[in-house]
Design a protein around this nucleic acid. Structure first.
Length: 296
DNA sequence: GACCAGGCATCAA
DNA sequence: TTGATGCATGGT
């Protein structure tokens, strides 16, 4: 996991870095706001910043950033302190994971912003990934704030994801008509309200276990077992969280259970066989299953 | 036109 | 506690 950090003008280069493939990281379903560019690089908006990520040979080039932001934001966001070789080695005791890991060898689990994850995964319920992305983009454009970028970066407009205050003032009807969130409109506004008023402090979840965090998150409208696990895994570093969606259900039934079951049984089975690394196993399996259409 | 999508809320048993 | 059903919306 050793790599060299090189600072250039508006760029940070991670030289000879392993376990970092932009396509795998940004298209494995954990994040909804990474946009692929013509040169195969990816651009996103996070923590109030716009950043572009490009892979060139064994290097990763982070553009429109600097060393200070890298140290304060991106090092943690990209989970660069974690040893993915160790995780892969442990999970590779399972022959099925060997295949899934080979397929998505460059996956990392990002540390994303809590409120954005809450609303994004409420939006994901009984929805399709391309439509989820579109709704999130529309919510950002209409209820987020425009981010100033250097003119010579791309010339496009970028918007931050809305704050809880911003979304709490939205009307559910507008979220439906303008942002195409359907029946999830009421849940989004109600949840934004609860968080904006401080009735639930998301930051407290950093210090809770998966089970404790799950119990708290599930008090929010629109947050159930699967959505809460996604929030815990993608925002709060709860690596033992094992979100079970239609794809994980399919891939688990296909390779492990060999029969038609239910999501609750799959959740407990995943926790039992993958343990503290269940979240990583889930991401490798999800990407593998969805890209190849396994079990469909 | 039925069926499905990174499920959840609700209600019956 | 578990199982069935409706839900907005848009694409097959």
């Amino acid at each position: 996991m050793k790599y060299t950090i090189i600072e250039e003008k508006d760029k940070i280069i991670l030289k000879d870095i392993k376990n970092f493939n932009p396509k795998h990281i940004f298209e494995c379903g954990q994040a909804f706001r990474w946009y692929v560019e013509e040169d195969k690089s990816y651009t996103t908006i996070a923590y109030g910043k716009v950043i572009n990520v490009k892979k060139e040979n064994n290097d990763i080039i982070l553009s429109n950033t600097n060393l200070q932001d890298f140290n304060n934001i991106w090092y943690h966001y990209f989970d660069l302190g974690r040893d993915y070789d160790e995780i892969k080695k442990e999970l590779s005791k399972d022959p099925i994971l060997v295949e899934a890991i080979e397929f998505g060898e460059g996956i990392r689990i990002l540390n994303q912003e809590p409120f954005e994850m809450v609303i994004s995964f409420i939006t994901s319920a009984n929805n399709q990934i391309p439509r989820i992305k579109k709704s999130i983009e529309l919510m950002s454009k209409h209820y987020g704030e425009k981010i100033k970028t250097d003119e010579n970066f791309s010339g496009l407009e970028y918007y931050s994801f809305p704050t809880s205050e911003g979304l709490s003032k939205a009307r559910p009807e507008d979220l439906k008509e303008v942002c195409k969130v359907g029946f999830r409109g009421e849940r989004i506004v109600e949840t934004a309200n609860i968080i904006a008023k401080g009735e639930l402090d998301l930051n407290s979840i950093y210090n809770l276990t998966r089970d404790e965090g799950k119990e708290l998150l599930m008090t929010l409208p629109g947050v159930g077992p699967k959505v809460s696990d996604c929030i815990l895994l993608f925002a709060f570093n709860k690596d033992d969280a094992f979100p079970v969606d239609v794809w994980v259900k399919r891939v688990m039934e296909h390779f492990y259970l060999k029969e038609d079951t239910n999501v609750k049984l799959i959740g407990s089975h995943g926790a039992r066989i993958f343990g503290r690394l269940a979240g990583f196993a889930q991401q490798y399996l999800f990407y593998y299953a969805r890209e190849l259409g396994i079990g469909k």
